[in-house]
Design a protein around this nucleic acid. Structure first.
Lengths: 208, 208
DNA sequence: GTCTATACGCCGATAGAC
DNA sequence: GTCTATCGGCGTATAGAC
């Protein structure tokens, strides 16, 4: 999980400088794959679909990624970067309680997508886990990014049970996403988010 | 959702009495499919896998189910029956609070499986939802069975917010399952279940 | 009803021209 | 680096003997 974000896939094989420009193509492939994997699932998305969405010839995909699995890993790494970016954004909030409340309310921004396709990370983890490949382990690290951040916030609230609260919070959010997708009801998400926001607002714990 | 459990698949086409014996073969196919769909996912499970696990020739599968989708629907119906059975079992508890607590503790019986493959119904719903087929709608009815039962229990506890509490409970349980699978940690499930059990024990509400 | 054999299409991956 | 063409394998579904 340490070098999850520093790795650039599997390009730098043995050449000193394979290509200076990181190339829009590689990023376009990852972006298209990220979207399609999320909407249709990994197994239901063919490399031809991804290449088409990224306007790249099918055979050329293999220049950037040796196998489909390598592309999956790159998408996971891109998700990790997205998560770190959003957490950095949350850190701009004034105090830990405000950060936590902004975190749970953040799901409302993707209400429609969540109701259709569920949580991008949760559903990806669940699918890869059943496939049994090595990518499952990489995907589970995405949750750890959230857990560590959550635990830090609760510690700053001087809560001795910070680790417990972090798990409880993540579980509550994930549960809300699951029933939101299953029922296709964005209203359910609003209700659960409002409840969690209230819970955090009333949670005991002084600022550090 | 009404006739989810009464349908027997798509056998009774136009024959008066196609076959008296419901046949162990059909049930064996459904049982094998239920297990494999759960462990590997629907898309990753081929009909050859299922036929092999059920000791039935591949071509013969199509005598019992016109398409793979029909088999998926039959598995969903079987899940519905399992759920109703387990709920009927819970109804043997003396009072609604005891029934609710027995429900959340029930997950501990499948701790190992949950840590490996997640919730059988939740992961199935999530996968089918992305595939876009008609089976997704059928799968979502499984959650409704739980929601209706949960709401009934909270109503018997004289809670005016019974529907809200039902959603909250189901979301909490599903969230616990998601992080249990993602972290492969049965201990996390124990922790969350214990917390929910305590919450239910201390929840205000008199017996009806 | 149950089986074997096979049609047909799609997908991951490769070869090789440019 | 990028493209076209294609191989090999697998999966759903069907045909037809028994």
């Amino acid at each position: 999980m340490t070098d999850l974000l520093s790795q650039r896939g599997d390009m730098d094989a043995n050449e000193t400088q394979p290509n200076i420009a990181p190339g829009g193509k590689r990023d376009r492939l990852i972006g298209a794959a990220k979207t399609l994997f999320y909407q249709r699932g990994v197994e239901q998305t063919s490399l031809a679909d991804i290449a088409g969405a990224a306007d790249i010839a099918l055979g050329n995909v293999y220049y950037h990624f040796r196998t489909k699995d390598a592309l999956v890993e790159a998408v996971i790494a891109a998700h990790g970067k997205d998560i770190l970016d959003s957490l950095a954004h949350l850190n701009a909030e004034s105090d830990p309680r405000a950060r936590l409340r902004a975190y749970v309310r953040g799901g409302l921004k993707h209400q429609t997508q969540l109701a259709r396709y569920g949580c991008p990370y949760g559903t990806l983890c669940a699918e890869l886990d059943k496939s049994g490949g090595s990518a499952a382990q990489s995907a589970s690290t995405l949750f750890n990014l959230y857990l560590e951040w959550l635990e830090r916030q609760f510690r700053e609230l001087a809560r001795p049970d910070a680790a417990e609260l972090a798990l409880e919070t993540l579980a509550a959010v994930q549960g809300a996403y699951v029933i939101t997708q299953a029922t296709h009801s964005p209203q359910h998400l609003e209700r659960q988010v409002a409840r969690l926001d209230r819970w955090l607002a009333e949670l005991e714990g002084g600022a550090a």
